[in-house]
Design a binder for these strands. Structure first.
Length: 560
RNA sequence: GCGCCUGUAGCUCAGUGGAUAGAGCACCGGCCUCCGGAGCCGGGUGCGCAGGUUCAACUCCUGUCAGGCGUACCA
């Protein structure tokens, strides 16, 4: 348990004891303890910790909150080792000021944990899966995929740090309608490149990457498939192109710092009969019916707006049917919870999929979908529509070239998935130095520079001996320590609530507090004991910043 | 029409039912004999609107207005 949690826990316990004591002695009347909190007040002048317990008791006890607070404060143990002073403030808050060395003790505990600082056992080893990006292998990765990659990867890292057993998964949509179209498009480009007159399929994929893929094939085998029967030819071209595309996607994501544990093929669900089996299972439970030649699932029984087709009249199962089988498979693999990161344009699918899971007997809450609002791309003041078919989109590759991995990842994770984001390419290209990621990285580099210079002058953390951290009494030093002591709870909160953007916001704040400290307090050259304490403070800060940046998939440079 | 997401400072966005709602950008002033000025400090009449719940609402509920996205035998 983290230092802050320990203290909160202890104060919570002590408060509860005092209030129960007041009840026992007949001074306070209530049925049971309300769910009061111990929090760190936003305003520093309100003490180190504060509780709202008096306000919550007001109604039952039939007394004004400040009066109740007064009774509690008076009944509090004056010989308390932890609490220095208590005061009543505002509408009835009880503010705690702790004994002055509590921050130093927290900092010492932080340093003792080293790289593990920030981790917790919040997830209790629960097996959890994050499936993200899962882009169609028919094209290149675009901005939406990039946002999904940054959010999904950071969330997975957070869950890992918070004590979950995490797996990252990419679902390869290598079956279904769009693969058919893909094949038709490939075939058209192939023949075109061989000089044939062909009509390009109307709703085919127009992306240049398709042409390039076929150029590569021709370089390898020439016109080998020119006279092959069309069906077989499409199959061969598709197989070739899929392999190439998936390899490209894997490579691009790796360059973006994303590495998966599992690449799961949709086709294998069809081949193994898992899709047919899932459909059959729903049928046995009596949830299917036939209409106009198609097989429907009464998904409306499970909360969808209307019923849905599972098997089309041409006998081919829908994406929905495959997805039900896929998520059943996930649960069969032992994941307690599975998280999907989807674009908001898929939100209609959430209720359907949850309904499917419920029909199969799984608690639908074990499937969580994070919908990210779509990314709007601005260039030259104009909104760019991203369309794979028209081939007009900025790819993740291009983005990485333009703004770099660090800036791109930080930028995407910085805002909540719920909010739409405008990505101004011109701004990102021309003013990269304004990007907040540099602000954070700069703080890290500055600290490394201080430690380095100390080292060059023979002052190292090792030969300084035991530092007296209670010498860190400046406001900017204490603010920095307080912020760092929040990290474990911050990570746990972000993981549990699936809000990776909080870490970006947190580390920006932390870097800001360091810059303030740096301006106010010299490290090198002050009295040896103080220098030792400040070097430790620097070391801890660098470690916390690096920890956050690692979670975000951003590098922590030692110099810039 | 119905469903989901979003309306917070000029702009882009944070904000876990609590006390005086924050940051970055932009704009205007300061701050380098000294650890990296890619930095620091100061400058603000802002929670779409209306009800409700609560001791307490940016936060929860209802309604309403505005924007985005869905509402296929596509995925």
């Amino acid at each position: 348990m983290s230092w802050i949690s320990e203290i909160k826990h202890e104060l919570h316990r002590q408060l509860g004891q005092v209030v129960e004591g007041l009840k026992a002695s007949g001074q306070l009347d209530f049925s049971e303890l309300p769910s009061y909190i111990i929090e760190v007040p936003r305003e520093k002048s309100h003490g180190d910790f504060a509780s709202n317990i008096a306000m919550l008791l007001t109604k039952e006890a039939k007394m004004p909150p400040r009066k109740i607070a007064e009774m509690i404060v008076n009944a509090f143990d004056k010989e308390n080792k932890l609490v220095d002073t208590l005061e009543i403030a505002g509408p009835g808050f009880i503010n705690f000021r702790l004994e002055p060395t509590w921050l130093a003790k927290g900092l010492a505990a932080l340093l003792a944990e080293g790289d593990a600082y920030g981790n917790s056992n919040t997830g209790k080893g629960e097996k959890i899966q994050v499936e993200f990006v899962s882009a169609n292998p028919t094209g290149e990765l675009h901005m939406g995929n990039a946002r999904g990659a940054a959010i999904g990867d950071t969330l997975a890292s957070l869950l890992d740090a918070a004590g979950y057993e995490v797996e990252r998964e990419f679902y390869i949509n290598d079956a279904g309608n769009q693969i058919e179209k893909f094949g038709l498009s490939l075939e058209a480009r192939y023949l075109e490149l061989l000089g044939e007159e062909v009509e390009f399929p109307e709703d085919g994929y127009h992306g240049e990457d398709i042409t390039r893929t076929m150029e590569a094939l021709i370089a390898e085998v020439g016109d080998k498939y020119k006279d092959t029967e069309s069906g077989l030819r499409r199959e061969l071209l598709t197989r070739y192109a899929l392999e190439k595309k998936i390899a490209d996607i894997r490579k691009t994501l790796a360059a973006f710092g994303v590495h998966y544990d599992v690449w799961f093929s949709e086709q294998t669900l069809h081949d193994s009969g898992a899709v047919a089996k899932a459909v059959e299972e729903l049928n046995e439970k009596g949830y299917l019916f036939e209409e106009e030649g198609a097989l429907w699932f009464k998904s409306s029984l499970f909360g969808t707006e209307k019923d849905e087709v599972l098997v089309r009249s041409n006998g081919i199962p829908t994406y929905y049917a495959a997805d039900i089988a896929y998520h059943k498979n996930k649960f069969q693999r032992g994941f307690q919870e599975v998280i999907n990161i989807w674009g908001a344009d898929h939100h209609g699918h959430v209720a359907r999929l949850k309904g499917g899971m419920a029909a199969l007997g799984y608690d639908p809450d074990r499937l969580q979908v994070i919908l990210m609002q779509l990314v709007r791309l601005f260039q030259s003041g104009e909104i760019m529509r991203m369309s794979k078919r028209a081939g007009t989109y900025v790819t993740l590759e291009e983005l990485m070239e333009d703004v770099g991995v660090d800036a791109a990842r930080f930028f995407f994770v910085m805002r909540s998935a719920d909010s739409q984001m405008d990505f101004d390419l011109d701004l990102a290209k021309s003013q990269t130095a304004d990007n907040p990621v540099f602000y954070v990285q700069y703080a890290h580099a500055r600290i490394c520079s201080i430690l380095q210079q100390g080292h060059e002058n023979g002052i190292t953390l090792d030969n300084m001996g035991q530092a007296d951290l209670s010498l860190l009494k400046e406001a900017s030093e204490q603010d920095l320590i307080r912020k760092m002591l929040d990290l474990p709870e911050e990570i746990a909160y972000a993981a549990v609530h699936r809000e990776p953007h909080r870490i970006a916001v947190y580390v920006l704040d932390l870097a800001g507090l360091f810059h303030t400290f740096y301006t106010n307090c010299r490290v090198l050259g002050v009295d040896a004991p103080l220098m030792a304490a400040r070097l430790r403070l620097c070391q801890a800060t660098a470690s916390c910043i690096a920890k956050c940046l690692k979670l975000l998939g951003v590098s922590a440079p030692t110099h810039m």
